[in-house]
Design a protein around this nucleic acid. Structure first.
Length: 261
DNA sequence: TCTTTATGGTGAG
DNA sequence: TCACCCTAAAGAT
């Protein structure tokens, strides 16, 4: 399920299957027949991610653009398609099935530039720039809790990470973005780099520090203990035991500990 | 077997 | 701010 770490992990895994190899493409569901036909038989140059956007470039310059949205999935399988599969990409007996994407289009070489023009820096990309992040935050009067979801400010953070980052750093989500200290913005960026990288490695979001709950490492933390505040309304804060509160920021559910933040 | 929810985003009013 | 899009899994009955 997709925040930036999911998409970067997908790019990595898809490259292992398809990079420099010819691709078979089809649309079992039938809603992407023309697009699938256009890339069918082409050789994949590379998959790459920018924030929550995923791109595949082919040797002839064509580009596949995928955005999973809230419910999209891109899964590896050896079997027949299950459910509504918009796009199946195959290499030998290995298939990758895409279902429920918000965006699935094929275009020319300019597609990547067009799709990323409005995106802010991505903490997982080599070209991700903390000063650009700070500059974009400086221009925002909206709450920091809303700004972290704004993909034109920073690309790849979603509803789980924003709640968790603000808890970890003890920042009130309602603080206007342009009033957050530059030092704190730097801390947010650095935390995003660290946490999203961990998310890619584990292929899941784990923000809790293992030592906080006596676990040997992040990978071994059981489900239900991996997050500090997300979806934990009423549960005791892992730091101060006060109940976590739920409210809304930018039209999305948000959780916080009013004592720690 | 229902209904609800979801780690996202757009476009209309 | 709201309706809406896409799909599947989890939760309620």
């Amino acid at each position: 399920m997709p925040e930036g770490h999911t998409i970067h992990r997908l790019a990595r895994d898809l490259n292992r299957t398809f990079r420099a190899k010819p691709v078979e493409a089809s649309s079992p569901q039938g809603r992407f027949e023309a697009g699938a036909a256009r890339i069918d038989g082409q050789t994949c140059a590379e998959f790459e991610a920018w924030g929550k956007h995923l791109f595949a470039t082919f040797d002839n310059g064509d580009v596949l653009h995928v955005h999973l949205g809230l419910i999209g999935k891109f899964r590896k399988t050896k079997g027949e398609p299950v459910g509504a599969v918009r796009l199946r990409m195959s290499q030998g007996a290995t298939h990758w099935d895409l279902s429920g994407p918000m965006v699935c289009t094929v275009g020319g070489p300019d597609l990547i530039e067009e799709a990323t023009a409005k995106l802010g820096p991505d903490p997982l990309r080599k070209d991700g720039d903390v000063d650009e992040f700070i500059a974009r935050m400086r221009r925002k009067r909206i709450a920091i809790g809303a700004a972290l979801l704004d993909q034109s400010v920073v690309a790849g953070i979603g509803n789980v990470y924003r709640a968790e980052f603000l808890f970890i750093l003890g920042i009130d989500p309602r603080t206007p973005a342009n009033k957050v200290e530059e030092a704190d913005l730097r801390l947010i960026w650095n935390l995003a780099v660290e946490q999203l990288r961990l998310g890619v490695r584990l292929n899941r979001i784990v923000t809790v520090d293992p030592s906080d709950i006596g676990a040997p490492d992040a990978k071994s933390i059981p489900k239900g203990e991996r997050l500090y505040v997300y979806k934990r309304q009423g549960a005791p804060c892992r730091t101060c035991t006060n109940p976590i509160e739920q409210f809304e920021v930018a039209g999305r559910k948000m959780w916080e500990c009013t004592t720690c933040q």
